[in-house]
Design a protein around this nucleic acid. Structure first.
Lengths: 387, 387
DNA sequence: TTGAAAGCGCTAACAT
DNA sequence: ATGTTAGCGCTTTCAA
């Protein structure tokens, strides 16, 4: 009963109007929940809608409302060259190098076709992105907020100059009303491109160079303070830290916050080893730290992945965690909970932050006049076994 | 020069036509690359486009062409209840239980707002999805194929009956021209819902109950055969297997293929322990196997995650891999390469298969009359250290 | 080869 | 409270 008219073109407002014995406008009002419609007529219209199996045509609606009811979720990289070890605000590509995914043909058997020919070039950026727990959390938060509002994100990757232009043009076409941008690199040119084009967007994490654009971020320094205080409260006295990349704000802030707090508590000089937010780099940093300071009793790693690497090295070197050396991570990603021992860590509420990003964007779309706003979230300490 | 007209409404075909001194129709022809346009006029039009900063309005175009130039990428679950341990064609949620992500408020500081309020209910399904390397590979393959064609996937999750209806209605509205569906559960009702509505879709993996719909799949039995032959060729004689869930075709086929090959080579009775495609279940299965058959010298696990779990147990029980016990996995996911020792495994070319899915859908959209086609890919053996 | 004109399905004044 | 009407920006016959 609802499908019969499909073949001869989907039912339109006109069809419904005819069936209900009213005008198109009235049907439109009912469908869009505009007041001033007689309850009786409303019922009649709803019946007609059911009978005809009517579904509003989105293109037609968008054409007149001038909104797509759609937003883009953009994962953005750096330059045109293969992106260097990527670095997100508080998370990044995991250690797993992952098969390059370029081999294996897969001869089509049934359909008599060949494999679609996967080109590994584009894949590597995406492989890195998906290897990190961070991305999934962002999507979770965004979808969670958007779905109840009937909108679904369009997934885009912008790791090359061409891809960035495509994002801008996608938005300019009105295919999406705005963009949620997650940058994996400090010098990402995309935010500027978007705002220069006068398009609405919200970023995850403050951009490295100032751009007049809304963003959501974490009070990284406060998080580092939490970690420092926990280590101190635990009685640790020979404390070191594994820092993240210092060209990204999150890396800088976590280090600065940690140092400040330690200094304030009488520890002005803290051994620092640099890492790249990966498990491997965390392990390597831990090795260096241990070589120079064999008597360490506490370590703060600027993210969980590095903390996991550190824990492995500590165990291999015969240190018990947390008895001999306490370890604190950052992010509270999946890696923290599955670490042996489970990681005490500074929680970054990525899902909430991502949802807030979506909310800021929708707010902005609703009232474009209002000034850009950003929101900074407070981290919390999650106590598990490692400290 | 390209931005000036934005404020007063984006430039339209009319504007370009005026600037070029031709008609709208001609501009349209040039833009859509229709032949029969004087080269001189073509140039003039292109100039006018550049000068005005024109971008075609997608809604207007869609309205007349009746295509959205967009497709939905749907990750589909099972019923309305919290999905049971999910199971994909050859992959599934990893062992990591992941923080429930419901705590931590994150008081807005800058914008004076509260956190967006993440509701953990919807998140758990997505958390499982992202914990699995499989999903990222699918997205990689799909985006890789679609992006050069100017189309970007809309990401949707369909783990409840409501969400499934939304997917169908999204498609019916013409918001997307078709769907790429990845099911995480055998009894998924979505494929039937979609085809019943007469909407174009392609599935990853053959549906558990027959539905008249295109899909892409792997010759799982052949893959299992490859694993069996490798174990035999290596000289293993006391061989067991860790099977996946038997309610999903991939689980069944991998077990059947392995058994058949072993039987054909004179090993009619193979010890089997059941797993759930997770690392933990793989470890548990290995324990059981070892308890009953301490003299095992070869194991085939129906996916990499379980193989990783098995390797861990073997090491803990003092068996060297591969010297004492050879291990073969399935999928060639990230987990395989990062396993200690690196896993010999049966490769499922997920990226290629996902790209082929997209290709099948686009083909179908281009010529709706043509019959549904499916493509079965051949697995290959990837030899690493574990066997 | 180009232009004129119709119309895709919908919303939003404006009239009633 | 409801109907009439005028487009939104584009593609596409149909004429010229």
């Amino acid at each position: 009963m609802t499908e019969d008219s499909r073949a001869a073109g989907a039912p339109t407002l006109e069809d419904v109007a005819k069936a209900a014995g009213v005008s198109r406008a009235t049907v439109s009002r009912v469908i869009n929940g505009v007041r001033n419609v007689d309850p009786v007529i409303q019922a009649a219209v709803r019946d007609a809608v059911a009978v005809t199996g009517y579904t509003p045509n989105r293109a037609a609606r968008s054409l007149v409302t001038r909104k797509a009811d759609s937003i883009a979720l953009v994962v953005s990289g750096a330059g045109d060259d293969p992106p260097p070890v990527a670095a997100t605000a508080g998370s990044t590509a995991s250690a797993a190098s992952a098969a390059s995914a370029t081999d294996s043909a897969g001869g089509g058997r049934n359909g008599g076709r060949q494999g679609a020919g996967f080109d590994g070039g584009v894949g590597s950026f995406m492989t890195e992105v998906f290897a990190d727990p961070f991305f999934g959390r962002v999507v979770t938060g965004v979808v969670n907020f958007l779905r109840p509002r009937g909108i679904h994100p369009v997934l885009m990757f912008a790791e090359t100059s061409l891809a960035r232009d495509e994002v801008v043009s996608y938005l300019r076409q009105g295919s999406a009303d705005g963009a949620l941008v997650v940058s994996t690199h400090a010098e990402d040119p995309l935010p500027a491109l978007i705002t220069d084009a006068g398009l609405p967007a919200v970023l995850y994490a403050r951009p490295a160079r100032p751009v007049r654009i809304s963003y959501v971020d974490l009070a990284h320094q406060d998080g580092a303070r939490l970690a420092a205080e926990r280590l101190l409260a635990r009685g640790c006295r020979r404390i070191a830290t594994i820092a993240g990349p210092l060209d990204v704000p999150a890396g800088q802030d976590r280090l600065a916050g940690f140092r400040d707090t330690m200094a304030r508590h009488g520890h002005p000089y803290i051994p620092v080893a640099g890492g790249e937010f990966t498990e491997e780099s965390g392990a390597a940093a831990m090795e260096r730290l241990l070589a120079e300071h064999p008597d360490l009793d506490g370590v703060f790693a600027a993210n969980d992945l590095m903390a996991v690497g550190a824990c492995q090295v500590l165990r291999e070197r015969g240190r018990r965690v947390p008895d001999d050396v306490a370890v604190i991570g950052f992010d509270d990603s999946r890696a923290a909970a599955s670490c042996r021992p489970p990681l005490t860590t500074v929680r970054q509420p990525v899902e909430d932050m991502a949802a807030e990003m979506a909310r800021l964007l929708l707010d902005r779309l609703a009232r474009p006049d209002r000034p850009v706003t950003s929101v900074i979230f407070e981290p919390t300490l999650v106590r598990r076994a490692s400290a």
